[in-house]
Every structure is written in structure tokens, then in C-alpha cells.
Amino acid sequence: MTKRKPLSTVVAESLAEKIRSGQLQPGAQLPTEAELCAEYDVSRTVVREAVARLRSEGMVVPQQGRGMFVSETPAPRNFSIPDEALRTLPETIALLELRLSVEVESAGLCAERRTDEEASDIRSMMEQIDAQQADPAAVQIHYDYDFHLAIAKAARNEFIHGFLAYLGPMIVPRFRLGYVVEPALKDSYYARIHSEHKAIVDAIERQDGSKARQAMRKHLHNSLGRVRALARASGVEATDAEQKAAAASLFTKMKRPVSTGG
């Protein structure tokens, strides 16, 4: 006997297919909860669970006070990712979760402690990085890591900056941006990232630690959502065993002596 899918899964899969087929275009607003309840003849709880699943997969995004909208940068359905890259997805997700926990505070401390010169340099770096808008197939997904390091340095906590600098070689050479951004959506993707970066920098310039933390959390949470969506779309699920293996690999690397050059 075949086990029936939960109603929330049925609704989520139906909405996902509408998004993939173009029936719901990028930037389009989802129907209201009441409309979805009527369309699928389900409760509000079922609808909320279905929409939450789509949001976790990066297919829809909230706009405060307006509702849910189809993401302008969904993970492409058809893609080709090398096997060696796929195998690192669980570790990449774990590292992004780690960054989220550290860099939110880093942004807040930067806003509270930065000098005027540092704030100016951070804005200049942002403008330079965001102006490049390279072909997603030729740029790494974490192309803005130097921007994040500059914020960490101005946070006046050498442990935060040193830790993120140490993680850099493990984080940056991961995936091409083209794995999560279709060429036709390149311009809207870069515009969104610039908007996220600008919110962080604006808060840093105003010395508003709370807003800086909030903006950094949103930025990294969106990045994490895109990578998680990539993992789900490619059939890679991070099991407990994979997460433990990823952590063991990371800590093994951290135990190695740091080369001082010569």
C-alpha cells in the first residue's frame, strides 16, 4: 500500500511546479493564504507549512507587509555539477551556518567600532565588487568574501577576523555562481545582492549595530537558502553522518600547523 503524501507536501509540490513551468513568474506574488486554502481545499496550517517549505528551498521570498513572492533567483532545475562539488555540499552548508553565527555579530561590532576611514573603505570595496557583475558561470558563489573580511577586520576582534580569514580558503573555492543563478536572471541577482550589501554598509555608516546585524543575517540567510535549494534540487541531503564527516574534515584541517611563510 502506497503511503499518501502529507497535504502540505502536495500543495508545496503543486506550487513548485507552477513556478518551474512559468505559470508563476519570478517576482510574482503568491496567492493569499485564504486563496490557497480555497484552491486546494486545505487549512491555513497546511498552506503555511507548504509555503515554509518553498521558502526554505529558496523558491519564494517574503516582502515585509506585502506577502510572499516568487524568487527572482531560483536554483535552476537543469544543471550539471561535478561529482566532487556535489560531495562537498553538506560541508558547504555547515560552513555557511557557521558563518551566519559569527558574521552577524561581526557586522554589529563593526558598526559600533569602525573608524570613518574604515566605513569609507568598506563602501568603496562594496561598490567595486558589486560593479563587476561577472558571468555567473565564471565566478565563485562567494565572490564577495573580501567584503565580509573587511567588515570583520573593522569589528576590532582579532579572533573573529582571524577565524574568518582562516576559513576563507575552505569556503571560497566551492561552487560557481552559475549553479544557482540562471543567465537570464543574472542582472536581477546582482541587483539583489547589491541591495543586501548596501543595507549592511548603510547601517555600518550610521553606526547602528542592531540594523547591521539584521542586514547581515538576511544576506547570509539568503545565501544559505540558495545552497540548501541547490542541495535539494540535486538530490543531496545532508544526513547526520555527512555533517559529522564534514565537521571532522574541517577540524582536521584546523589542527594542522599554520605556515608562516619564509
Rank of each mutant, 00 (worst) to 15 (best):
residue 158 E to N: 12
residue 134 A to W: 07
residue 185 L to A: 11
residue 182 E to A: 15
residue 161 H to K: 08
residue 116 D to G: 03
residue 132 Q to I: 14
residue 183 P to G: 05
residue 183 P to I: 06
residue 159 F to W: 11
residue 139 V to S: 04
residue 117 E to H: 05
residue 182 E to R: 15
residue 91 E to F: 05
residue 118 E to L: 07
residue 125 M to P: 01
residue 79 F to I: 12
residue 152 A to D: 00
residue 96 L to M: 12
residue 178 G to H: 06
residue 133 Q to W: 04
residue 125 M to G: 06
residue 191 A to E: 10
residue 177 L to S: 00
residue 133 Q to M: 14
residue 77 R to H: 08
residue 92 T to D: 13
residue 150 A to L: 10
residue 110 C to E: 05
residue 183 P to V: 02
residue 120 S to W: 09
residue 155 A to N: 04
residue 94 A to P: 03
residue 107 A to I: 02
residue 122 I to L: 03
residue 157 N to G: 04
residue 170 M to K: 08
residue 111 A to L: 10
residue 103 E to Q: 15
residue 86 L to W: 00
residue 108 G to W: 05
residue 103 E to R: 03
residue 128 Q to I: 12
residue 93 I to R: 06
residue 186 K to M: 08
residue 144 D to N: 11
residue 168 G to W: 03
residue 101 S to A: 14
residue 97 E to V: 04
residue 96 L to N: 08
residue 173 P to S: 07
residue 83 D to E: 15
residue 82 P to H: 01
residue 111 A to I: 01
residue 108 G to C: 02
residue 82 P to E: 00
residue 185 L to Y: 10
residue 180 V to P: 03
residue 177 L to K: 04
residue 127 E to N: 11
residue 136 P to M: 05
residue 113 R to P: 03
residue 182 E to K: 10
residue 163 F to I: 08
residue 170 M to F: 09
residue 79 F to V: 11
residue 85 A to S: 11
residue 165 A to Y: 10
residue 101 S to N: 13
residue 81 I to K: 04
residue 169 P to K: 03
residue 187 D to C: 00
residue 162 G to I: 05
residue 92 T to G: 13
residue 170 M to D: 02
residue 82 P to C: 04
residue 79 F to K: 13
residue 78 N to G: 09
residue 172 V to K: 02
residue 188 S to N: 11
residue 144 D to K: 01
residue 179 Y to K: 06
residue 85 A to P: 03
residue 150 A to W: 02
residue 139 V to F: 05
residue 166 Y to M: 11
residue 121 D to L: 14
residue 134 A to L: 12
residue 82 P to A: 05
residue 99 R to M: 13
residue 180 V to I: 14
residue 174 R to S: 12
residue 157 N to S: 08
residue 119 A to Y: 06
residue 115 T to W: 07
residue 163 F to H: 09
residue 91 E to A: 14
residue 134 A to H: 07
residue 124 S to Q: 14
residue 125 M to R: 14
residue 166 Y to W: 15
residue 139 V to D: 08
residue 174 R to K: 09
residue 173 P to D: 09
residue 170 M to R: 07
residue 143 Y to F: 12
residue 116 D to Y: 06
residue 155 A to K: 05
residue 136 P to Q: 03
residue 114 R to L: 09
residue 80 S to A: 10
residue 104 V to W: 08
residue 94 A to N: 07
residue 129 I to P: 00
residue 167 L to H: 11
residue 78 N to K: 12
residue 126 M to N: 07
residue 191 A to G: 04
residue 111 A to E: 06
residue 157 N to P: 07
residue 138 A to I: 07
residue 170 M to E: 06
residue 107 A to C: 01
residue 83 D to Y: 12
residue 102 V to R: 09
residue 78 N to E: 14
residue 190 Y to H: 02
residue 173 P to Y: 01
residue 127 E to L: 15
residue 80 S to Y: 13
residue 131 A to Y: 03
residue 151 I to L: 03
residue 173 P to L: 00
residue 122 I to V: 12
residue 105 E to G: 11
residue 121 D to F: 01
residue 143 Y to Q: 05
residue 87 R to S: 15
residue 76 P to H: 00
residue 176 R to Y: 09
residue 164 L to E: 01
residue 79 F to Q: 13
residue 103 E to S: 02
residue 84 E to D: 15
residue 98 L to G: 08
residue 190 Y to S: 00
residue 81 I to T: 09
residue 133 Q to C: 13
residue 187 D to W: 01
residue 79 F to M: 15
residue 122 I to Q: 03
residue 87 R to D: 13
